[in-house]
Amino acid sequence: MAGWLSPEEWQALGLSLKVAFWATLVSLPLGLVAAMALARGRFWGRSILNGLVHLPLILPPVVTGYLLLATFGRRAPLGAALDEIGIVLAFRWTGAALAAAVMAFPLMVRAMRLAIEAVDPGLEQAAATLGASRPWVFATVTLPLILPGVLAGAVLAFAKAMGEFGATITFVSAIPGETMTLPTAINAALQVPGNEASVWRMVLISVVLAMAALALTELVSRRVARRISGT
């Protein structure tokens, strides 16, 4: 089995999974907060937040990558400050995770926001009259009800993070073993003549992973929906 892929290909697959996992995990709570704010919040700057969240969806990925480099590069002000406390993002796998997270964020927030908007605020009011404080209401009523949307958002973000290319290659390049994820590895393999077999293997893995993610979301949200409706 291990011989089916070359060590470099295994490395790219492993790195992609690691990058996508961390990108999803770290952006999950942030995405939830942003989705709650956009769905429920009535505050100044809400449309600005909405625009910022969706920006990576409409900007050319290379632009997003460059903006990340300009912000988190070692010589950029924020990057230098982070460097001081030992956090380096540029040209590291952590930077690839950041790029993937930023690119996947709009998809994640969108799925969660739709789920939150579908929750009847009357149920939350009912919980409050029964004595539940706001955090309790969120934990016991809102969160369980939006769980399918949260999971869908997470899986979607994971799949998107697995496939992120433009921003990643601009921000962290494609360093084998550090930042060379599956898409950048496919791109690199394409540059070498006679490497079609390797390209096909990685393309196949990408397709299978994407479809598995989609099937997983379907399965999970259907199961959760069934649990909620109780039928």
Binding site: L123, Q125, A126, T129, L130, G131, R227, I228, S229
Partner: peptide
Amino acid sequence: LPPHRRRIGYVFQDARLFPHLS
């Protein structure tokens, strides 16, 4: 006082039972 500190029971017209709980 916020609703959760009032200890006022409220029976809504549309019941508003939590659909995810028994």
